[in-house]
């Protein structure tokens, strides 16, 4: 058990020419946390990771690891484990030599290298593949080699750059679990970059959602999913209903003029996740957060039925109904009433 080390970025900025790629990003990651940088391509997450790795030196701000300023330290001085996009497995070395690489360059004793390589390969379930070369391995096996190589030296911090991007969906899910398990077993601090929001939600202790070189929101998966601070975060993390509402003094009115009560927020965009919206055939009872509408279409997804409901004024609301015991299917054209709890919704700036 090597344990982890804390990581912090302090107001880090990176520019290429006139373009600011990362703009004053600050974050503090406690030791042992699984932290994910999530965002669309071009949001600055890879540059941020590169600054943590030491491949890129920030123009402003500091990189701190385990309490030490590492801003100017080259990658080899940072003692990090890394898993690269496309794995970066050396084609001229076999599996054992690849995994041993971080130890070999340090000049570790032979016996220790052997023991650690065996241990790391066991951990990723690749014992017996020592003599193979990358071209003789499947994508998933290559990914495991990359993972074994990242952890073989028992680093306190592991950086992973879209490590599962090239795998198919089933394998990806499987590896998510394994990576998380190994990270927890070794107690390492993991910093993970992905553009896949599901992956981020599944694996992370905390997520930072990046947009345009800044952190749009940071927090535990459930918090950022359920309580987005902005339209961007709301829309980026899964499906979201974003409805224009009007303010009438203290009152907020929805598309049909019905009263709206939201859990938090002051803006004029109402956010509510489809799975928080219930659909019933009954007429509105007069309470808040009840919108009458007409079913546009119903998509049967198996465990869930997704309704698109026209609520007037050109607005459509999505609602996911669990296909539970005795579930009723509303046909397209049927009049329905939508409802959600105030605490499941937020008002966001437009």
């Amino acid at each position: 058990m090597s344990g982890g080390a804390s990581v912090a970025l302090e107001a880090v900025t990176k520019r290429y020419g006139t373009e600011t790629v990362v703009a004053g990003v600050s974050l503090a990651i406690p030791a042992g946390e699984f932290f994910t940088l999530l965002g669309p391509s071009g949001s600055g997450k890879t540059t941020t990771l590169s600054m943590l790795a030491g491949f890129v030196i920030p123009d402003e701000g500091r990189v701190v690891m385990g309490g030490q300023d590492m801003t100017q330290v080259p990658p080899r001085g940072r003692g990090l484990g890394m898993v690269f996009q496309n794995y970066a497995i050396f084609p001229h070395l076999n599996v054992a030599e690849n995994v041993a690489f971080p130890l070999t360059v340090k000049g570790a004793p032979k016996a220790e290298i052997q023991a650690r390589v065996a241990e790391a390969l066991a951990m990723v379930k690749l014992t017996g593949f020592e003599a193979r070369y990358a071209r003789q391995l499947s994508g998933g096996q290559q990914q495991r080699v990359a993972l074994a190589r990242a952890i073989v030296a028992h680093p306190r911090i592991v950086l992973m750059d879209e490590p599962l991007g090239a795998l198919d969906k089933n394998l990806r899910f499987h590896m998510q679990v394994e990576i998380k398990e190994i990270q927890q077993r070794l107690g390492m601090t993991a910093i993970y970059v992905t553009h896949d929001q599901e992956e981020a939600l599944t694996m992370s202790d905390r997520i930072a959602i990046m947009d345009g070189g800044r952190i749009a929101q940071m927090g535990p998966p459930r918090e950022v999913y359920e309580k987005p601070d902005s339209r961007f975060v709301a829309a980026f993390l899964g499906e979201a209903n974003l409805l224009d509402v009007t303010r009438d003094g203290a009152l907020v009115r929805g598309p049909g003029g019905g009263a709206i009560e939201a859990g938090a927020g002051q803006g004029t965009t109402l956010f509510v996740r489809p799975e928080k919206v219930t659909v019933s055939a009954a007429a509105p009872s007069g309470g808040p957060n009840q919108l009458p509408g007409q079913v546009l279409h119903a998509s049967f997804l198996g465990n869930v039925v997704r309704y698109a409901v026209d609520v007037g004024q050109g607005a459509t609301v999505l609602a996911d109904a669990v296909n539970g015991p005795g579930a009723v299917l509303h046909a397209p054209g049927a009049p329905v009433t939508l409802h959600w709890r105030a605490e499941d919704s937020r008002l966001l700036a437009a």
């Binding site: 080259p74 990090l80 690269f84 970066a88 190589r149």
Partner: peptide, 12 residues
């Protein structure tokens, strides 16, 4: 990327 990877893994 292989060269960068090697550097990242501690190689001078």
């Amino acid at each position: 990327r292989l060269l960068q990877a090697a550097e990242g893994m501690g190689a001078s």
